[in-house]
């Protein structure tokens, strides 16, 4: 599995994908940082992540849309699936690599934390809890993105399905409040308040596991229908 993670990370940084992801996020984050700090004169690091979470909706597909679709299109999945690696390990490897990219991005945001330290007194624990929540949200998003990538060999379609799904669940509560717990992005809102909500954490983790499991099933099933 380590081999898959290593190779995935390499492709993220040999191709522009990794830089585009991190770059786009930091540009958007900087804009929100500017608005929060200078327009609203707030030195709350965690508040920026309310807006920051919405960026994920649009940039996670950049990371995930190629993961499996590209292998399928190029035929390299033949190399992976005829190796002694199990499908579960392949999927997990790809998932962890994408999650690591998000983690690297999060580390970059400490730069903003440093700037805020200069002006005020931001709360480090709250910031860490926020980052944890942000990672959990990103993991849930990534796992769905990988699932979308496994059902098609066209990267664009995988990307569009992913964004479409994210936007749908984002705005579901607007139609009916009964759906509010389906909105992945809403679940995030408790974390910047500095509390790790057990229910929300479990929702994220189970959603992630479910998507990864479905991906494994999709790939397993393709073995017999391909």
């Amino acid at each position: 599995m380590w081999a898959v993670i290593k190779k995935e990370l390499k492709t993220y940084f040999y191709s522009p994908i990794g830089y585009v992801f991190i770059g786009l996020f930091l540009i958007m984050f900087s804009i929100f940082f500017y608005i929060d700090v200078f327009q609203y004169s707030s030195v709350n690091f965690e508040y920026i992540f309310y807006s920051g979470a919405t960026i994920l909706t649009f940039i996670v597909p950049i990371l995930t849309m190629r993961t499996i679709a590209e292998e399928r299109k190029n035929g390299t999945e033949q190399l992976l699936l005829t190796s002694p690696l199990s499908i579960t390990k392949v999927v997990l490897g790809k998932f962890i690599a994408a999650a690591l990219i998000v983690l690297i991005t999060e580390l970059c945001t400490f730069l903003y934390f440093g700037i805020l330290c200069f002006f005020g007194d931001p709360h480090i624990t709250t910031a860490l809890v926020t980052l944890l929540g942000f990672l959990l949200l990103a993991m849930a998003y990534i796992s769905f993105g990988i699932l979308a990538s496994s059902i098609t060999e066209n990267q664009i379609i995988a990307g569009v399905i992913t964004i479409g799904f994210f936007i749908l669940v984002w705005f579901l509560p607007q139609f009916n409040t009964a759906f509010s717990s389906f909105s992945l992005i809403n679940l995030f809102s408790t974390f910047p308040e500095g509390q790790i909500d057990i229910a929300n954490t479990i929702t994220y983790i189970t959603f992630t596991i479910m998507c990864l499991l479905l991906t494994v099933i999709v790939m397993q099933r393709r073995k017999s229908v391909r």
Partner: peptide, 22 residues
């Protein structure tokens, strides 16, 4: 496999090492 599928973003040695790993 047919049509020699390869990871075109990798270098030759990296690819062979990757194959050895998996």
């Amino acid at each position: 496999p047919e049509g020699v599928p390869l990871y075109s973003d990798l270098k030759v040695k990296e690819f062979v090492t990757y194959m050895a790993e998996i």
